[in-house]
Design a protein around this nucleic acid. Structure first.
Lengths: 367, 367
DNA sequence: GAAGGCTTCGTTAGCGCTAACATCTTGGTT
DNA sequence: AACCAAGATGTTAGCGCTAACGAAGCCTTC
């Protein structure tokens, strides 16, 4: 009712358009001046009897619009089912409202969940994410991806990929926009986010040490992975801190197959009583190798993994591991992006999420 | 080495901008008439001594440009490091060059890899993908996602999510753009792509039957999953085709935990000699339940999974399963999108990828 | 009761492109 | 030599918004 009244009050000024609406010729025919394609701001303006600028004001929630006018405009918007064109907006505002996400490498549990968390956080912050996924990690593909995104005028570019090379490549590019990467090592010249891999590894190792183990080996991730490096460092430091000797670690590639291969070798070494494996996937491979070799876990060998993928609880035996909150990491990434975009100093504790020990059946006191 | 070299080469070209960043008032001042911000078509035009339209012609590879002029323009473009603004292009061309991808639900192995394949294919086709990921599958979130994408003027919207509800919701929305979903059941009113879940299930079941099994149970995925339904149908049909009785299937939720729970029940039933599990994750749970219950696999019970995740080969015992090419599916999705966009009838065999039997140690002849 | 100051609105320019048309060269024709 | 058709370019309008300014109208205030 109020709307109608308001409309009548304003009639004088927009006589023409209103009578057009009422359809001079006949029954409930659709408005004659109804826009043909997608309605624009001008269509709304005409219908509400105001200037397009007033529509813009309503849309952007600016002050200086009379309540009645606002109402009228809002109604017109609703009636026409109008939505502003993001393209035109980006054009006029000179910003795309877009964040580029590069996801390089295998879509593993961690990265995938981080990407999910990031995507949701970006959406919540009003940004759109333009995603470039690729299996390969080589410099040229990565460079292309960044350029693609830069060319789309992304306001920031995020890289989710644990490989050091990817981060290095990114650092070498001047995209003209802030770059944020998941990187557990400090990377001068770019913004980074990560979980506390080092601390996680320390805790994993100390869990083993606390169980009385002394010959604790490490099956590391690929040398090019920063996470792998941090975990390795954490393990070695923890060992030394307890007067133990961190022996030469084995190096896998995160996949179960490599864990299996490395496990076969380890299984032959009777001196080893525990092993800290770089991730859960390699752990399952290693567990399988032990089974084949007749090495009992945890009786003969304690095994602890990293990540806590949903299947870890059903390994044979159920895997003790370090749980990581990847979705949280994804949200942290977006938080950092926002900080950077606002030119605020990135909060220093964006790397503070510490993996949590989940004890299951694959670790036991040294027999 | 090669990488390093490339990086160094790139150094030279970005020297200026880097120093700009570091010190705003540095000596290596850029050309006087250099555009301040991002160069536009007019900057290129001025530098090349032509009109902006000629630049546009060169950019869009139109005819009617003298070779010498073209060269001059191209040089100016290179010198200014100019790239056309996609936003302005979208504005003028009235198309966004954007495909919306909705990824709903857990980022599992299948969907993640399909998304990867899709993303790469979209990029190859010159499209940008705007991704909306969300953990939840409810109608309202999904509807919002579609509107988000529609509002971005995506030229097509793709849904990767096995749940029937998602597809139904999508169908109920008139986004004004083509919708393509991964759906293994026919969905009138929308375009769909999928792998041949039915045939895959038939083959899995026949593998078991060929091994002499008769009491073959099925642990299905959630009722809301179309893939689960198709696999169930394939199993039941195969059973009947061989004169066997498809007993009431158990229903899980794709996760290892549910496979474990269901496995505990199944393990009590000594009449069962084989089970076809809806996916590999549930299989690992089921395998664990068997282990706990003292049921030997494959001696007492044969188990076959579905998907062939990379860890399947290291289950205890290594899992016989049906391998699916998810990346290929992703590419199929994009191919369908292109067909739809070109208004071509979608090739009927976009649903023809048949899962491939991978025999490992979890199935054996009926003892 | 005229000068200021709000509030509320409209007008005018762009944003960086493409599309359509206009213009100016050429060189071949008659 | 006048003429026309291409070919090669330039001009002019938009695309649908936002930003900056300008112009009313209505209260104040002295």
């Amino acid at each position: 009712m109020t709307d109608t009244d308001a409309a009548h009050e304003a009639d004088a000024t927009r006589e023409a358009s209103v009578s057009d609406q009422v359809s001079p010729s006949g029954p409930p025919a659709p408005d004659v001046d109804e826009p043909v394609g997608v309605p624009t701001m001008f269509d709304v303006a005409r219908r509400a009897g105001v200037s397009h600028q007033t529509v813009s004001r309503v849309l952007n929630d600016l002050t200086g619009v009379a309540a009645s006018t606002r109402l009228r405009v809002e109604q017109a918007i609703a009636e026409l089912n109008y939505t502003p064109s993001p393209t035109a907006r980006a054009m006029a505002r000179r910003r795309s409202g877009l964040i580029g996400l590069i996801q390089a490498g295998r879509p593993d549990y961690g990265p995938s969940n981080a990407a999910l968390g990031f995507n949701e956080a970006a959406r919540d912050a009003g940004y759109t994410v333009s995603q470039v996924s690729m299996r390969s990690l080589d410099a040229s593909s990565l460079t292309q991806a960044v350029h693609r995104l830069a060319l789309q005028r992304a306001e920031a570019i995020v890289l989710i990929s644990g490989e050091r090379e990817g981060v290095e490549v990114l650092r070498g590019i001047d995209a003209g926009v802030p770059l944020v990467a998941v990187a557990s090592e400090d990377e001068p010249g770019m913004h980074r986010v990560s979980m506390d891999q080092y601390q996680g590894a320390v805790r994993a190792t100390e869990h083993l040490i606390g169980l009385g183990h002394q010959e604790i080996r490490h099956v590391a991730g690929p040398a090019d992975s920063m996470d792998a490096a941090e975990r390795l460092r954490g393990w070695a430091d923890a060992m030394r801190a307890h007067g133990l000797d961190p022996r030469e670690p084995a190096e896998g590639d995160w996949l179960a197959a490599s864990g299996y291969a490395l496990g076969r070798e380890l299984a032959d070494d009777a001196t080893v009583t525990a092993v800290f494996v770089g991730n859960d996937q390699m752990s399952i491979g290693l567990l399988h190798a032990c089974r084949e070799a007749g090495v009992r876990v945890p009786e003969d060998l304690s095994v602890i993994g990293f990540d806590d993928i949903p299947e870890a609880a059903y390994f044979a035996p159920p895997l003790t591991t370090m749980r990581q909150d990847f979705e949280g990491l994804g949200r942290d990434i977006m938080a950092t992006v926002l900080d950077v975009l606002r030119d605020e100093p990135s909060a220093p504790d964006r790397t503070a999420r510490v993996p949590e020990l989940v004890v299951r059946a694959s670790t036991a006191p040294r027999g």
